[in-house]
Nucleic acid binder design. Sequence first.
DNA 1: CTGTTAGCGCGTTCAT
DNA 2: ATGAACGCGCTAACAG
Lengths: 332, 332
Amino acid sequence: MATVKDVAKEANVSIATVSRVINHSPKVSKVAIQAVTTAMKKLSYRPNAAARALVSKSTKTMGILVADVSDPFFGTMVKAIDTVATEQGKHLLISNSYHSAKKERETIELFINQGCEALVIHSKSLKSQELISFAEEIPGLVLINRFIPEIANRCIALDNLKGSYLATEYLIKNGHKNIGYICSNHNIEDAKQRKAGYLAALEDNSLEHSENLIEYGTNNEEGGQKAMTKLLAKGLPMTAIATYNDYMAAGALSALEDNNIAVPKNMSIIGFDNGLIAQYLHPKLTTVLYPIQIMAKNAAILSLKLANKEEYKVETMIFVPTLVKRLSVNAI
Amino acid sequence: MATVKDVAKEANVSIATVSRVINHSPKVSKVAIQAVTTAMKKLSYRPNAAARALVSKSTKTMGILVADVSDPFFGTMVKAIDTVATEQGKHLLISNSYHSAKKERETIELFINQGCEALVIHSKSLKSQELISFAEEIPGLVLINRFIPEIANRCIALDNLKGSYLATEYLIKNGHKNIGYICSNHNIEDAKQRKAGYLAALEDNSLEHSENLIEYGTNNEEGGQKAMTKLLAKGLPMTAIATYNDYMAAGALSALEDNNIAVPKNMSIIGFDNGLIAQYLHPKLTTVLYPIQIMAKNAAILSLKLANKEEYKVETMIFVPTLVKRLSVNAI
DNA sequence: CTGTTAGCGCGTTCAT
DNA sequence: ATGAACGCGCTAACAG
């Protein structure tokens, strides 16, 4: 592996000159540029990123922590971040936490040790206080999908409650009065907030709301299917169901089909996230749009600005979900 | 940011000793370990990865190039690689090529400059020769989803032809004689190989095969829908259709539904990949399993071994796809 | 415009 | 068991 020294010797100039042409310094003679360029090609020289980082104290690297890249939700998020990072000449270090607090902590520390100046962190398991400490240590750290009041200007989050409220309200506007809810049993804020949104909508419309109308499960298809089955077993006069997310809605759909209950004819159902599968479900799923793309883009921009010590305020920190009407909800 | 020097001073030892306890050298006295550990905590010392990489010539970083992380196919691939990388204490640098040859080239060079010793590359746009050069330069470079004879021991690929052959043969075994094919118009090997597999199966079974039975489109839902529509317009006596991938199959399903052609009753359809959406489609899609998880795992292991200069031969380089029978194919 | 020189933070001989 | 000193490859003064 050739170094600046080798190139300098080959081109008959000093290493300083080599460094200058590498970094496109304005004050280098044409001949020098020519000689160095040729030498670099001949030796197939590659600048050593570690050495550069060591002296310039910048790795041009952005760290991203997600729960699981194989989930298209996070895939979409990473893609959006990648787009802005690439524009700014940054590279992406990525890590999955799989919802483990330990992994979340280790990853953030790793990112710091690696010298990532910009960090976009999706953390659901770490305590607020710990995140606040990290945020204080790293100016470029931005939290996504989570809101912590003490560091509000470092958070890009979704109004989960409003999302569920919107979904439930939409069901109500369609004439439904007995509305069930399929809830995630994952102990994170999102689950509580979405459930609260459902409850609030019922209450605001003076409709019955009882724990009896709610069932819990893992936040995936299987959990949704089981929860739906349990709900069905109660023999409640439900005509519609709101769900924690699209995967659970998909599971509910399966359970309904297995029991010959036509959707939306005899049961309306609404999802949450507007994930990849929503449009492929049958019937195509009416759901709530989680604007993760635009949120991720904003988080990336914010992180980069902050890391660059620029004063910067994003216009929106708390994003509002919207309704995506497809075919799984009927008027009664 | 504290350095070894600061820690050394705080602990009243030399930087060499500090370095030793950091790297768990066996010959350090208990007292020294204690003193240094305390000092590190007090100063909240973090080893500088760049400095370490510079001197030890190892970044413990693995580079991954994919086409698009937001596609669950690649998400799954990245996750599988992440699992083995994490086990070995490696971190992941990830980049998307979005199918651009330029981006593919730049990314590989970036990875090299960054000092990634292990590389798992999904490249469809670069010429074989260029990839061979890179492979010769970087011992730890492994190609995934592509086979280049000259560097066969550095490739983990799928037998695409056999996959399509399997799919078409399955249709034939179910009594279908007029089988159409929805092909990707993306100019990459996979498209040619899969089409060839379809053709070969028809030929081996003495069935009609003509370009008239084939339609092309972009390799996504929209392309599948359009291709299906064109196929339908020809008024052929088809009873079954093989497709380039699950997304195109999904589009075909939509077109079929729009035209009131029941699947699988009046038309059988088979996908390719067994991607995330296959199980959510209606009817659940019969398809061909692309074992990307196990392939990615093997690629990661191979890459790490190679980077480590260990002699290593994976048992399987060319993986064979298998059938996943669901509900979109009927016997005639 | 160009060359010399001094570190950046750390691992590693080589003495002790 | 420990410390002094060197060098990894590069950038950034500084002096010419």
